[in-house]
Design a protein around this nucleic acid. Structure first.
Lengths: 219, 219
DNA sequence: GTCTATATCGCGATAGAC
DNA sequence: GTCTATCGCGATATAGAC
């Protein structure tokens, strides 16, 4: 049987290994120097082939970037919303999902290179016709839906009647996280993204206030 | 006497007029087609000179963009925080400044081209060494300070004790506005930036809530 | 001081040989 | 699947015309 079953990892072909090598090289170089400063020739050389050889695996430079970022997206999403990546997987409870989401914000502070790429590409991709346009539209749609569901659950748990529509709060939270990244990238030492996000969530009643402890989401 | 006094508008020199013509052309072309799709040769041709001639007035393409945006910045800032542009000018009251700030968000919905340029440049400019890096650092510093002062005043007016530090709220508001632009640019018909910002401000007690009972979220 | 012409560079992308 | 060769383009530098 050389037919692999759906979930069994099979031996990668040579092409797949080259592709992976290219993505690893691109991730490293993009993270270090950004998108514009890195040429296809740089990536190809780092991966051990020529730029024309690289373009056999990817249609263009931006396609490489999109693949780099969507690979990371998949990893991040899996940690917060496992159901996105593996449909049917049961999501953790709302409190746990929120904890993981804030943890993701904190973890991003360790990879300014990637965060910067994300900020740049998501801005460029607002242009219809940009190769990553549909990817980002879809990304925001999925994230907004997941966060909306999360907010609904948190509002229900919070007890007090919800002041705002869950979709609106979801938009606010995602916008806040994105906008904070820009401020943090400009002045990394002056901003603690995680703290600002926590403060916002506290205002919504999703995290205990800084006085007497509330419902147990400590430390 | 052909000596103009300090504040009297004097006849612009030929160079200054050329410079202004270049900026007008660049604004129009950038707004219509974005940054990457427009070449220096396009801008120069539209302004009636060659691309090398243009480069006698600006060191490079990005310098042109920075000038285009900072010119707009000056106009916008003047409408909300007159004191920034003309030091010593008395600011309007907090309520009025907040009203103008929200009005600016609403007005931005009329110029997606410029908003997009802003989103793209502010992301690119997070890279230290980018020609606009210092401009954006300074821009955020000034905006954050002005908004912090505004938030302090609004918190005092709101009566209830402030839950968050004014600087934090200022960061949140600016981040929210920036992040919303990305979402709006991706799906202009699905987002009403002004409404989401108002909702956020309502949650802070800076705008009147809708009715009393809290259950006012319809639709 | 203002602008043009030209020459050169490195880039992304394509075509076709192997 | 990878190469060499080549194209067109944007960006840049220099020399010099007005």
């Amino acid at each position: 049987m050389s037919e692999p079953s759906v979930n069994a990892p099979r031996r990668p072909s040579k092409g797949e290994r080259t592709r992976a090598r290219i993505l690893d090289s691109a991730t490293e170089l993009f993270s270090r120097s950004g998108f514009n400063a890195v040429s296809l020739r740089d990536i190809a050389a780092h991966a051990g082939l020529t730029h024309a050889g690289l373009l056999h695996h990817f249609p263009g430079k931006e396609a490489v970037l999109i693949e780099v970022l969507s690979r990371r997206d998949r990893i991040d999403a899996q940690s917060v919303f496992p159901g996105i990546v593996r449909p049917g997987t049961p999501e953790p409870g709302p409190g746990e999902r929120l904890r993981r989401l804030v943890g993701l914000v904190a973890r991003n502070s360790g990879t300014p290179g990637i965060v910067g790429l994300y900020a740049k590409l998501s801005a460029e991709a607002t242009d219809p016709g940009h190769p990553a346009h549909h990817y980002f539209k879809e990304r925001y749609r999925v994230l907004r839906e997941e966060v909306t569901v999360l907010v609904e659950a948190l509002q229900a748990e919070a007890g007090a009647p919800a002041r705002s529509a869950p979709e609106t709060v979801a938009r606010q939270l995602l916008a806040l996280m994105d906008g904070l990244q820009t401020q943090w990238l400009l002045e990394p030492e002056a901003v603690v993204m995680e703290e600002v996000v926590r403060d916002f969530l506290r205002g919504l009643g999703f995290l205990p206030g800084d006085g007497a402890g509330g419902a147990g989401v400590s430390g």
